[in-house]
Computed example of a mutant assay.
Amino acid sequence: MFTRLTIRASKFTLSPTHLPKYPILSTSLKARTIATMTSEVQPRFQQLFTELENRFKSTNLGNDKWYILAASTIVASPDPERADQLYLHLINQPEYATPTARQALVRRLREALIKSVPIVGVCKPIEAILAISEVERDEDKDYSFTREGWQCDQANHERGTEWFQKLYARNGGGTLDLFRAHKDFSWLSTEITYGLFLSDRQVLGDVDTQLVVFPGIMSQNLPKETHWHIRGTRRLGVPKEEVELIWNCVQLVAQFFEVKLHKVPTVEEVEYDV
């Protein structure tokens, strides 16, 4: 049988000599230190973004388009949190030196991530926007709400169908007919993917939107839908050589993340169908 053993703990008071010799950071100072540590753009990402930006300079797409492709490919990658690197890279540019400019920038990045939801799912865009939020300064935050009051009504249906037809044209009916036995998917396409998400023009325009959709799909190595959206981008009037540049930029980002895109068609292989 065990006997009870009572142990009396003696009182012990730390004297100054027992205190650690290094300073203890306060919670707020720790937060500021971590923020400082994470506010630097990693050199490899700096090189990637500079290369993408330089490639887009040879096009007529505009100087605010390359980072939409960067956002859509990063959020489709295995490391969507690195959207913070893109944001940090951009806010170091002279054109985004003020809170107003940064708020306009984050509206575009946020909309690119919102439009990525039906392309890559909701979880990766959430990781991406939270990563951006962690490095945003308070004065740079934008509190607008683009989908407030949205309804799945006739106006939404017409808006979604109009944008869908603009991309699919003569192929629209046949594409939706693929889901004759799975009508939830055709409804999802017209009312949600195109109605709620892709046809909204409050922040991003037509080409901006395709720079979310086409790269986001291609980044997942999806052959059929990559074909459809190479074709759709060409039907918007983007020249073949510029669509090829977009295709090459998607491959560049995929290689950066060590992802192989071996099933997607080339622009040349789709050209007959434009």
Rank of each mutant, 00 (worst) to 15 (best):
F179G: 05
D64F: 04
F197C: 05
G205R: 04
T38S: 08
R110C: 06
N63E: 01
L88S: 11
R235W: 07
L19P: 05
T3S: 11
V135T: 07
L211K: 01
S28R: 03
G160P: 10
D84Q: 12
I126N: 06
N92V: 09
Q154C: 09
I126P: 03
D200P: 14
A101K: 01
H229L: 02
H182D: 08
Q85F: 10
E111A: 07
W150A: 10
H227N: 12
V264C: 12
E242L: 02
H262D: 14
P215G: 12
A35H: 09
D64G: 03
G121L: 05
W247T: 10
P43C: 08
L86Y: 03
I91K: 05
T161D: 11
A70M: 04
T73P: 11
T190W: 03
Q255I: 08
L29P: 01
N63V: 00
L109Y: 01
E269T: 11
W228H: 05
P20H: 06
I7W: 14
H182T: 05
D177V: 04
S77L: 06
S15L: 15
V75K: 03
G121Q: 08
V203R: 08
P43Y: 10
V259G: 06
E51H: 15
L19E: 09
K11G: 10
P265G: 05
V135H: 05
Y143H: 08
S72C: 07
L52I: 02
S58M: 09
K65Y: 07
T36K: 06
I132C: 05
I74A: 13
R231C: 09
D208H: 13
E268V: 05
E134Y: 02
I132T: 07
A104N: 12
T266P: 07
K57E: 12
S219K: 00
R102Y: 02
T27G: 12
L105N: 01
D177L: 12
N248R: 11
T38G: 10
I119E: 01
Q202G: 14
T36N: 12
L178K: 06
S15F: 02
G173M: 12
Q210F: 08
T209D: 11
S26M: 04
P118W: 03
N221V: 03
I74M: 11
Y96L: 00
I24R: 15
P23A: 11
E269A: 14
G216F: 11
S28Q: 11
F185G: 01
S28H: 07
E225G: 01
E225K: 02
I126T: 06
